[in-house]
Amino acid sequence: MLRYAITRLISLGVSLLAASLLIFFVIEVIPGDAASFMLGLNASPETVVALREELGLSGSLMRRYLDWTGGMLIGDFGVSYTYRVPVSELVMARISVSLPLALYALILTITMAFPVGIFAAFNRGKLSDFSLMGVTQLGIAIPNFWFAMLLVMAFAVSLKWFSAGGFPGWENGVLLGLKSLTLPALALAVTQASILARVMRSSIIETLSQDYIRTARAKGLSRRQATTRHALRNAMIPVLTIIGLQFSFLLAGAIIIENVFFLPGLGRLIFQGITQRDLIVVESVVMLLVFAVVLVNFVVDIAYAITDPRLRTGR
């Protein structure tokens, strides 16, 4: 197990290194000067030179890469060109919205998907399975921004249970913060839960046809016992993969939902960074997201090993 964890950790480090090199070279080395790109067509040469100095674009390639990565290691991501504040501050403020939102959405996803997937698998071929799968089909098909607007109309406009958007900040109380994230999390979770429920269902059905389930039944376990004791854990292996992918997506891909609900999240930050040509923000946030995704994959890998002993001991 330890060896497995260490090899995964090494692969995590290598992924990060490769990603940082790629991001750095795409932005720095590709033809076109970052400073003049950021300033637009009508910038005077002097401002460009000044910005180049400020961005630290004048040193050698190696030096600039080391400065950038070294800075990130100690939490210094540079200063945003448009906001004129350190990128780390910007990012921290945004993460405090995006990370809870992603986690919240993931928890909703799992709590919706697992019961639905298990129930549908258990009643395979029956009307209940058919209708549940129909609902998940719909859940995948409906664009989540549209669903978000429906949620706003129902729960914010008509029932007035939630606010229609915005984020009050955590300093006004955790409950209030969570409340304002509920509708966006739900809007995000519906699509993800629909996907996950379908994966869960087919994974369980596949597992239920395995020989060891027959062995369990021959031992005298009821259908339900055989499913809960022997099928679920085996069925979790493909489900874990999907959960990992979904969390990465929820963290970085919530941009449309963030826009619908006026949430100051990471997605919006990147989007603004791109439209305002703030390469420093873009570069740093992309790197941060890569880090998050790689970290999630690491966690998923460890979860695999906990679920499946064959990975722990090697074959």
Binding site: Q210, D211, Y212, R214, T215, A216, R217, A218, K219, G220, L221, S222, H230, R233, N234, T307, D308, P309, R310
Partner: peptide
């Protein structure tokens, strides 16, 4: 269920897949 495993035991052809891989 009370009879299976208690009064009638059964073993199958393919021992490679007949046991749950994630349980000891």
């Amino acid at each position: 269920c009370a009879i299976r495993g208690k009064e009638i035991g059964m073993i199958f052809q393919e021992p490679m897949t007949a046991l749950n891989p994630v349980k000891t």
